[in-house]
C-alpha cells in the first residue's frame, strides 16, 4: 500500500476529509521553504503537494506564477526539489508528498533518471499538468512502473466519455479542478461540486480531492463536507509572498486544516 493509499484509508476510518496543501518548493528561498514544509504535518496537513518551479506555468494564476519566479530566482532546480523531499523524509516517513508541475524540467532531466531519483528521495506521487492521458507513455507509465502514483486532474470539461480515459493508469486519488480556469481564481460552490465529485468517484473508484479557488477556512470546511479532500494553494502562497514568517503561515494553514477536519 502506498503512503497515499494508507493516508486516505486512515482518514476514511476516522470519517475525515483529507487536507492537501500546495506550496512551491524554494519559495521564497530554500531554507524558509523547507521549514514551512516540515511544519505542515503538525499544522494538520494530510498530503503535501510540492510545486516544481517552471518558467512557463500555463495553468497557474499570478500567485503561483510569482512563487515559481521567486523560487527560480533563488536558484531552485528540479534536483534541489528532490533534495528538499529527502530532507523532509529524515523526520517524517508517513506524510505523502506529491510533486506538482510541468513536464519540461522532468523531460530535461530524463524521465528514467527523474523517476528513480524521485522514488529514492521519498516522493509518493506526481501531478504533471501538461500530460493528459493521451501522453501516458511519456511519464505516467514509467512512474507507475517505479511505484509512484500518477495523479490525474479531472475538470468540468472532462465529460462522461472522457472519464474512463482519465481513470486509466491512475491511482492514489483524483484531483478535481472545480472550475474552468487557472489556479487562484474564483471557486465553485460546494453545492455545484458535490454531484461532480460523485460522478468522478463512481467512474474512477478513487478518492476525489477538490481544489482551485479555495481560500478561507469556511470554504475549506464546505468543500471538505462534499469531497474526500480539499486542496489549498494560492491562499497559502499569498501569505508567503506577503513576507509572513513561518509560524504565521503555519498558523493560517492550521485554521484551514481544522476547518476541513471539523467538517
Amino acid at each position: 500500500m502506498s503512503r497515499i493509499d494508507a493516508k486516505f484509508a486512515a482518514l476514511k476510518a476516522e470519517g475525515k476529509a483529507a487536507f492537501v496543501s500546495f506550496v512551491m518548493a524554494g519559495d521564497p528561498d530554500y531554507e524558509t521553504s523547507l521549514a514551512i514544509v516540515k511544519g505542515l504535518p503538525a499544522a494538520g496537513v494530510d498530503v503535501i503537494e510540492l510545486g516544481m518551479p517552471f518558467t512557463d506555468p500555463m495553468a497557474d494564476g499570478p500567485a503561483i506564477q510569482l512563487a515559481g519566479q521567486r523560487a527560480l530566482a533563488g536558484g531552485m532546480t528540479l534536483g534541489r526539489v528532490l533534495e528538499m523531499v529527502r530532507s523532509f523524509r529524515v523526520d517524517d516517513q508517513t506524510t505523502p508528498i506529491i510533486l506538482m508541475g510541468y513536464y519540461n524540467p522532468i523531460y530535461s532531466m530524463g524521465v528514467e533518471r527523474f523517476v528513480a531519483a524521485a522514488k529514492d528521495a521519498g516522493v509518493d506521487g506526481l501531478i504533471v499538468v501538461d500530460l493528459p492521458p493521451e501522453e501516458d507513455d511519456e511519464l505516467c507509465l514509467p512512474a507507475n512502473a517505479a511505484g509512484l502514483n500518477f495523479i490525474r486532474l479531472a475538470t468540468p470539461t472532462t465529460d462522461d466519455t472522457r472519464l474512463p480515459a482519465v481513470a486509466r493508469n491512475t491511482s492514489g486519488f483524483v484531483y478535481y479542478v472545480s472550475i474552468t480556469g487557472i489556479t487562484g481564481a474564483a471557486s465553485a460552490s460546494a453545492a455545484r461540486v458535490a454531484p461532480e465529485v460523485d460522478r468522478v468517484r463512481k467512474a474512477t473508484g478513487l478518492p476525489v480531492c477538490v481544489g482551485f479557488g479555495v481560500k478561507t477556512p469556511e470554504a475549506s470546511a464546505e468543500i471538505a463536507g462534499v469531497a474526500d479532500g480539499v486542496v489549498v494553494g494560492s491562499a497559502i502562497i499569498e501569505r508567503i509572498a506577503a513576507g509572513e514568517d513561518t509560524a504565521s503561515v503555519l498558523a493560517f494553514v492550521k485554521s484551514l486544516t481544522e476547518a476541513a477536519h471539523g467538517a
Binding site: 495553468a59 493528459p132 470539461t157 472522457r162 479542478v177
Partner: peptide, 8 residues
Amino acid sequence: FVSETLMP
C-alpha cells in the same frame, strides 16, 4: 501536451 481542461 495540454492540461485536462483543454484536451476536450
